[in-house]
Design a protein around this nucleic acid. Sequence first.
DNA 1: ACTCCCCCCTGTTAGC
DNA 2: TGCTAACAGGGGGGAG
Length: 306
Amino acid sequence: MPELPEVEVVRRGLADWAAGRTVTRIDVYHPRAVRRHVAGPVDFARRQTGLRLEPPRRRGKYLWLPLARPDSAEPPADALLAHLGMSGQLLLRSAGEPDEKHLRVRYVFDDDGPELRFADQRTFGHLMVAPLAPAVVGSEPVPEPIAHIAADPMEDAFDVDAFHAALRRRRTELKRALLDQSLISGVGNIYADEALWRARMHGGRLTANLTRPETGRLVAAIRGVMALALDQGGTSFDSLYVNVNGESGYFDRSLEAYGRRDEPCRRCGTPIRRVTFMNRSSYFCPVCQPVPRSRRPRGAHQADAW
DNA sequence: ACTCCCCCCTGTTAGC
DNA sequence: TGCTAACAGGGGGGAG
């Protein structure tokens, strides 16, 4: 469930409580948590021990903390790169507090401050140490493994015209495109449905047919819903998504489409529909977000996802 | 080159 | 009541 707003909440917590601290020990309890660090858990720990965590950055759903040598002014070559996946949590806990049931990695620092713990029930999240790509003039260095990810809609670097052009080049459906992190990053299943509802557009629309005003409306809807969610600490349906202090956000109360099957659309009263799409749920208002002509069933017998 | 789908996980809940 | 199956879903990687 962590999408851009939830990851940003975590990033802000790390900025307050982890940045500037020097790592003295790292324990990896589950190798799957560092599976993308191909050199393995021992190397993962060795390459951070003695280094200082610099202020966290974020692109889309990824966040990273550059790793600096405490005795050197050289810009960091590597960063601790994190993705929370479905259920990953980065928590700051005093050493005396009991371990989380799904604790995967523990960081201990050279001060008396709290440990940084990575807990992850479903183990879709991961941590790795990754080289930072050389800084290009006017842009920040980004870890190499995420160089293929597009800018997210909250970044200055996000270019709506370029996004529109990329959508027009694609031969796919709009919701698929929104979930494709190489076109726009940070959008997941929940905010895709929320943004489409706000923009009054159907996720089955073909991206090749979008007009420039429609793309503009959609990007404005994504930014709007994400800004609102960030104000409310993100979306949590249960205790799986929490900030670095273990607290849940409450944007779930403000959802207009996601999870509202058969409940009235708050614009027009029509029951919200739920359909299965890409092996996940999609929620939309069939009146405010009309099913595109190309997707309407041509016969009563025809099964149609939308 | 582009598009699409499966699968990796575990805890909760719905259904029989 | 107890079991099974569905569901939640990000994204890598392979198939087509």
